[in-house]
Design a protein around this nucleic acid. Structure first.
Lengths: 230, 230
DNA sequence: CGATTAATTGATACTTCTCAAATCCTGTGG
DNA sequence: CCACAGGATTTGAGAAGTATCAATTAATCG
């Protein structure tokens, strides 16, 4: 699922211990309650955010109120550097899905770091180039697959993304609304399809937590042409 | 329409005369006939491409044969540097829509240039960050707008993009198939909607060339929240 | 000018959306 | 610990929007 996942954690992982220390000095710890915004579409960026704990979403709300989610961030992810790097206002908003613990690096500080750690620039560049491919893939999924296929597909992606310590199946814990907004459909449609998937034994559901039972069946359902790494 | 348009031409425009000379030395001129591929999804990048003449499309073909177009390139656009910069295979293919005249810069040469022109790296980074926003916007259009709205929207984008010397309306000359694949729908649906737009006097059609008659009407139809620069 | 490809129109079927209503959870205060 | 309020989830029914298949007309190229 490589090309469906950002990997901004690599930016930091690929730095040396010394460089990391430099990066983390002068950061500010922030806490966001569930529902709070890190930043809002249309506003000017003031710095970048590093997720320490919790999950957040990058999204955009249209005039008629519908929301589109582009990506769900978790621990280790770096957020918000794009707008900073092209000197534009944010195109999207970032909102806490759960309570979040975040490190903030100010714009000034970040620009300084980019000079002091030449390496950092390369890592970010490589990462953005990768993200381009991820978004390309997201677009082709949205445009070419049916909602049913998309849901199956995203369950696989999310399963992969929220895996902890090598376990095969992770707990996918998202509101039906968020899930719908992630795959670009209506809440009720997601609910209906999930219940089909449950009946067909692709998944199991406890409360609202989804757990995959058969990757193979979902792959077939998603008509996924791509190898899933277990 | 700023945030719906790549602007890779800025990468080169922002270089000094000297830097441009450096960039253009050691390029190879390539000619692609209509339908030929610059590069193909899944293959390893060997260099980057600068459009001199013609139009080409970045696209991806799914297993069942449907094609999704992400962007249409014209004179001045720089193509294919993403895969190079993240050391991944191409996620997409680039195909000539018309006969194309292209300058090719080899991977080795490009990497050398990145060292010799430190500026270049910043320009590319800024550009990729911008493109991120463009793709984000493309995703939200695909996910949130109806096909009708999307078509109206893309006609506005294309009108803006193919404008020549300050004229208000440009000739949009794309096959119905390409137009359909760009907005993520079926050919027949595009044809039907275009004919509605024509009847409602939003556009006029000669042969297959589309010309906008009323930007305002299309904006309303697209439910576009964004100012269109005339 | 004829052959091939692209564009258009029509009819029908299917997926998905929308609105409405019911049920299930969660957290809070008594 | 229980009851209740408010939100989230689920289910149903009907409508709308698009896709698909088939057939016709128009444009293009050698």
């Amino acid at each position: 699922m490589n090309n469906f996942d950002f990997r901004s954690e690599l930016i930091i992982n690929n730095l040396s211990i010394k460089e990391k220390e430099l990066l983390f000095s002068h950061t500010k710890q922030l806490l966001f309650k569930k529902g709070q915004l890190f930043f809002h579409e249309g506003s000017a960026p003031t710095g970048i955010y590093l997720m320490k704990e919790g999950t957040s979403k990058i999204m955009k709300t249209s005039l008629n109120g519908t929301e589109q989610i582009f990506y769900i961030y978790k621990k280790g992810d770096l957020i918000g550097y794009h707008a900073l790097l092209c000197n534009e206002d944010y195109q999207d908003s970032c909102q806490a899905i759960t309570d979040c613990e975040v490190l903030f690096i100010s714009k000034v500080r970040f620009e300084l770091l980019m000079q002091e750690i030449p390496h950092l620039k390369d890592e970010i560049m490589s990462n953005m180039a990768h993200e381009f491919g991820v978004l390309i893939n997201k677009i082709s999924i949205l445009a070419q697959k049916s909602v049913r296929e998309r849901l199956a597909f995203y369950l696989l992606i999310l399963n992969d993304r929220f895996k902890e310590n090598q376990e095969e199946f992770s707990n996918i814990n998202l509101s039906r609304e968020d899930l719908a907004n992630l795959i670009g459909t209506a809440r009720e449609t997601v609910v209906r399809l999930l219940s089909e998937f449950k009946n067909d034994d692709y998944i199991e559901i406890n409360k609202r937590i989804i757990k995959i039972k058969s990757v193979d069946k979902l792959v077939k359902c998603a008509k996924a042409e791509l190898e899933i790494e277990a």
